[in-house]
């Protein structure tokens, strides 16, 4: 990135005068960076380290802990609820992300076509992503009500089922329900991001392929998908990251129940640490999420690299 060397003659004679300092790229740069850097070091980097340290202590609310080595992790290793939460998290993330990707891509392709009121559609499609998750989750809670669910009512009226569905009371139903609510909220993000990517694909490629006799599926498979793959990698990494660390939706809808069937690692960590008071154990669960997150970030990083390469840039 064109680093412009200033001609030596233009440099002020004394390097350490205040005026010289004001023109020194490094000094001004560090000065400008200082507020953000100091803030992030205190409120992000330090707590991240503190969290890892807490995982090795038996800290409780109101009592400073001592170093206990790997005891928290040994406890978790033998804790079937912890392993259930790991399984739930992976299941939740995998199923929700795949659905979000499939439906999001479909919606993006629909919105990318010739449509009347396109801007309007794009605007309302994003709404679920804009409103606070907790508040829309409360609406889902009412939609999933065991007795008065509108879905059950509609299905009963159509004669498909006889009794109301127990959406959140049964393990399998509860898992499906929270995944559906998560997908509902996540699809707009994926769709609008992918739509932005779709709009950068020149239509001339599709026109040329059509002239050569390519079918719509071939055009999708060999033009749209490859051109879109860099942005898919990044969008899906973000999506996986946010789904994996999800907390709000589960906390509102099920609080981990029934019988811990929907407990995610984040909700279990909260439950053990704040209401349960076992800060050390909660921190250990949170730390156990880090390897998965690192894997997602590395994935994102290589996605970015490929994108730059495709743009013809070097760095």
């Amino acid at each position: 990135m064109s680093v412009r060397a200033e001609p030596a003659a233009m440099r002020p004679p004394s390097r350490w005068s205040l005026a010289a300092l004001a023109h020194d790229r490094n000094a001004v740069g560090l000065l400008f960076l200082l507020p953000a850097a100091a803030f992030l070091l205190v409120f992000l980097t330090y707590p991240l380290g503190l969290g890892v340290w807490l995982g090795f202590t038996d800290t409780r609310i109101g009592r400073a802990g001592v170093y206990v080595g790997l005891e928290n992790y040994e406890l978790l290793w033998d804790d079937s609820i912890f392993w259930l939460s790991v399984f739930n998290t992976i299941l939740y993330t995998t199923v929700a992300s795949l659905l979000k990707f499939g439906l999001g891509l479909w919606l993006a392709l629909l919105l990318n076509g010739r449509l009347p009121f396109k801007a309007f559609f794009r605007a309302i499609v994003l709404l679920p992503w804009v409103v606070p998750t907790v508040l829309s989750a409360i609406a889902f809670w009412w939609i999933y009500d065991a007795q008065f669910s509108i879905i059950s009512w509609a299905l009963m009226r159509l004669g498909i089922i006889d009794a109301p569905i127990n959406f959140l009371g049964d393990a399998t139903n509860a898992r499906a329900s929270v995944i559906a609510a998560n997908v509902w909220r996540g699809v707009p993000f994926v769709a609008i991001s992918l739509l932005a990517g779709l709009q950068t694909i020149p239509p001339s490629l599709h026109e040329a392929a059509t002239l050569d006799g390519a079918t719509p599926w071939q055009r999708f498979r060999h033009i749209t998908l490859p051109m879109l793959s860099p942005i898919i990698a990044v969008v899906m990494t973000f999506s996986v990251l946010f789904t994996f660390t999800d907390f709000q939706l589960i906390y509102v809808l099920t609080r981990g129940g029934p019988l811990n069937a929907t407990h995610l690692m984040a909700t279990l960590s909260f439950q053990r640490a704040i209401p349960g008071g076992q800060l050390g154990e909660g921190a250990a669960i949170a730390v156990a999420m880090i390897p998965f997150l690192l894997a997602a970030i590395l994935f994102s990083y290589f996605g970015l690299q490929r994108r730059r390469w495709q743009q013809g840039g070097q760095d």
């Binding site: 740069g29 560090l30 850097a37 992000l44 991240l48 969290g51 946010f242 640490a273």
Partner: peptide, 27 residues
């Protein structure tokens, strides 16, 4: 300003964006 190490700081900022609140709230 492109000070020395600015690219590294830029990457660090991006990584900071990826740290989720669910692992920071306890500390």
């Amino acid at each position: 300003l492109r000070f020395a190490g600015s690219r590294f700081v830029g990457l660090a900022i991006f990584l900071a964006y990826l740290v989720p609140p669910s692992i920071l709230f306890i500390p």
